[in-house]
Design a binder for these strands. Structure first.
Lengths: 138, 138
DNA sequence: TAACAACCTACTAAAATAGTAGGGATATTG
DNA sequence: CAATATCCCTACTATTTTAGTAGGTTGTTA
C-alpha cells in the first residue's frame, strides 16, 4: 500500500497539474485546499523538487509549480520518489535492487513470479500520467 | 513491498508444496531447511492454517501440510493472508476496502488509475500458484 | 529593509514489523 | 497411564517506519 505521504504527494501534484501554466502555487494554499498538514506538505514538496519534478520560487509571488507538463510526469516516477520500490521483493526491484540471501536468482520461482507481476504493474504505472488522472473527472 | 514475514511464508509454503502428498512436515524441519526463526515460523504457519491453507497434526508423526494441491493455492491468496491488501490504496482494495475522505470515488482520477493497476496485478497473482513457482526450477 | 515564502535540521509520537518467551493443549506410543 | 512429541496460545520486547511538529535560516521582491 502507498503511504499516506504518497497519497498527499499525489493530491498535491494533481492540484499543481490543474494549475499548470498559471504560475507558482503557495504551499499554504495547497495545504488548505487539499487538507494536508502544512509542515508535512512542505517536506513532501521539497522532496519532489529535489527529485526534479517540481520547481520553486521564494519570496512574494513565489510557490511551487510542476517542472514538466502533467503529461510528462508518470505515476511510477512519483511512487518511486515518495514511496520507494514498486516491486514486491527487493531482489526484483529495478531501482532499489537488493540481493536476497540463500537464493539462486536464476532458478528462484518466487522471484520469477514477482518479476512477471512487477512488469505488469509497471506497464500501467509508467504509462499513466498526471494528465490521465485529470482527464477522468471530465 | 512484501514483509519479511510474507517472504518467510512463501518459502515455507514452497517447501510444503515440494513435499505435498508425503505426509506432515515438522515446523522445526522447515525452520532449519529454510533458515526461518523457529518461533516466528510457528506463528506464520498457524496463521496460514487458520486461513485454511494448511492442515496440522499434533504429536509424534505430526507437522504441517498443504490442505490443497500446490496448483490450487494462488499467490494473491497467500499475500492477502499474511501481508494484507494487494491494491495500492485502501479505497481500491477488494478485500480490505476503506473509504477515503474528501473524495468522490466516481470522479477520482487517482482511484481510477489505481484500480487499473490493481486489476493488472491481480490478473497475474490470482492466476499464478505454488505449482508455477515449483515448475521454474525444473 | 520589511514581508514573504521556501528551505533546513532536528525532534517526537504512534504504529507496524520482526521477532522472543514460556507455558498449555492434544496426540501417540510403550 | 506416563512420557514424549508436536502444535497452540497469550503476551511481551526491540527495532524500524510512518506521520507528523517546531523553529530558525535563506533567498526574493517591493
Amino acid at each position: 500500500m502507498l503511504s499516506k505521504k504518497t497519497q498527499y504527494a499525489f493530491r498535491a501534484l494533481i492540484y499543481l497539474a490543474e494549475n499548470y501554466g498559471k504560475g507558482p502555487v503557495l504551499i499554504s494554499h495547497i495545504s488548505v485546499k487539499k487538507k494536508i498538514p502544512l509542515k508535512f506538505l512542505e517536506n513532501i514538496l521539497n522532496e519532489l523538487k529535489k527529485a526534479d519534478l517540481l520547481e520553486s520560487k521564494k519570496g512574494k509571488g513565489g510557490g511551487y509549480s510542476l517542472k514538466f507538463s502533467p503529461r510528462q510526469i508518470n505515476l511510477a516516477t512519483v511512487i518511486r520518489v515518495v514511496n520507494g520500490p514498486i516491486a514486491l521483493l527487493p531482489c526484483v526491484s529495478l531501482n532499489f535492487y537488493e540481493k536476497c540471501e540463500d537464493c539462486d536468482e536464476d532458478i528462484c520461482g518466487l522471484r520469477k513470479m514477482m518479476t512477471i507481476t512487477r512488469d505488469a504493474t509497471l506497464k500501467i504505472l509508467e504509462k499513466k500520467t498526471l494528465e490521465d488522472i485529470l482527464l477522468v473527472g471530465v
